[in-house]
Design a protein around this nucleic acid. Structure first.
Lengths: 242, 242
DNA sequence: TGTACATCAGTGAACGCGCGTTCACTGATGTAC
DNA sequence: TGTACATCAGTGAACGCGCGTTCACTGATGTAC
């Protein structure tokens, strides 16, 4: 019953676990769902004894959860960084605090440009990590309730991150928190959907990108108008005719 | 090589095919994807000899395609009818042709109300055919490329239907065809996504319904503003303050 | 510093089972003449 | 109207195979004293 320090072995020699997870990612990316993976098949791909699987995972679902958790960790922070980077590349920080009422046009431009920039960076990210996105979208509505639940959480976190960032960067100060989160959730869902098309139809990438941009702008605009700030927005968009 | 009339047997005695398709729907609805179904399992559920499967289908994918085709046929026309029904219940036909410029407020109200009504009817429809929607959303990003492709087509058709109806009913006469189709595609995708939540979280149905409504209104509004009709719309929404 | 023990990732053989698929057959229905 | 034949949905037995899982074992590394 003596307390023991966690052994180094776990982190140093967990090669098998890594190999199995990589094998799973590779096999699912083509055209498979995680639950359709055979444990022997996985071991074969990883170059390990089938039995070794049990040293690391109880069953395939547990493998799936581990992969999802890892990917969520790997994607979340970079996505936040992308957003900040985009917002700051558009407006110098000393102007960042200017309120909507004081300068609606600046704010709208800022939000729109930051958005476009973020969408662009997001799709670049997708193109560099296609397997992660394929697996995520597939299992989000896949057969395993456990994985579905886990991915729902991931999507909810992404949306919350986006809402937090938009609020903190004061990109859409006229939206209340609830509306902001709804809009962010929709954008999050749509971006993941569109990322599948982006991966599978490389020749359509420009069109998909434009569509994603347009969607975000529409949602921001629509939400703003409905929240009673329409007049200011329209004045900014279309100056009074002579 | 004599031409033969199609035999009646096909339509009369295709009990086995029906039984197998129903079994597949039942089994997938719980927590399975079509490709994870065993052909013996299917036969067992249908109360048939495993071998009978081959009398009707080449493999599981072909079964899946047949189901998808059937469901698409079953859903498409009713959805169109719902939309017409909703639009007509809102405005008497003799006023249906009034143009946007002549009476923006009427048009906006018409579109919004018709939309809300349609969304409501759509979710009722979802609640009555949960299995069809679960299967559709699951396989849309599922493991089988064949089924994915088929469901992409189905979704595209739904979106095109929606765009055609909106145009024909003159609900959003200020939007060009391309924008209209993009908006319809987004709404279509989001409605199917939300339908999963609607099925799985009966206690949240009011909230999900409200969210869906809000989304549609935001998209319509956003698209309208961006297409340069914002001023009219805003005037309709928020009359000039004293 | 040495020794005895515990932990841990990985191995290899073996198991029983359910799977997809094939083959030969049946009986009902439809068709030709 | 009768007869011979074709088609078709469904049956039942049999096959070989790959699967998940268990068991007993190994060798490397970490830990206690």
């Amino acid at each position: 019953m003596t307390a023991r320090k966690p052994s180094l072995t776990k982190t140093v020699a967990a090669q098998g676990k890594r190999l199995l997870m990589d094998a799973a990612l590779k096999l699912t990316a083509q055209s498979r769902s995680i639950n359709a993976l055979g444990l022997r098949e996985l071991a074969r791909e990883a170059g390990l004894n089938p039995n070794t699987f049990y040293r690391h995972f109880k069953d395939i679902d547990e493998l799936g959860l581990t992969i999802i958790e890892e990917m969520s960790n790997k994607l979340r922070q970079p996505l936040r960084d992308l957003r900040r980077q985009a917002a700051e590349s558009v407006v110098p920080p000393e102007l960042a605090g200017i309120g909507w009422e004081e300068n609606p046009l600046l704010n709208l431009q800022k939000a729109t440009l930051a958005t476009k920039e973020t969408v662009k960076l997001f799709f670049d990210y997708v193109a560099q990590n296609p397997n992660a996105f394929i697996l995520g979208v597939r299992e989000l509505h896949g057969a395993s309730p456990l994985l579905r639940q886990a991915l729902r959480k991931v999507m909810a976190d992404f949306a919350q991150d986006m809402a937090d960032d938009i609020k903190q960067l004061k990109l859409l100060p006229m939206l209340d928190d609830v509306t902001l989160l709804e809009v962010a959730s929709t954008i999050s869902r749509e971006m993941f959907q569109l990322s599948m098309d982006y991966i599978e139809q490389p020749e359509q990438r420009n069109a998909i990108f434009a569509q994603a941009e347009a969607l975000v702008v529409m949602l921001f605009t629509g939400a703003t108008v409905l929240k009673g700030h329409g007049r200011l927005l329209v004045q900014a968009l279309e100056p009074l005719p002579a």
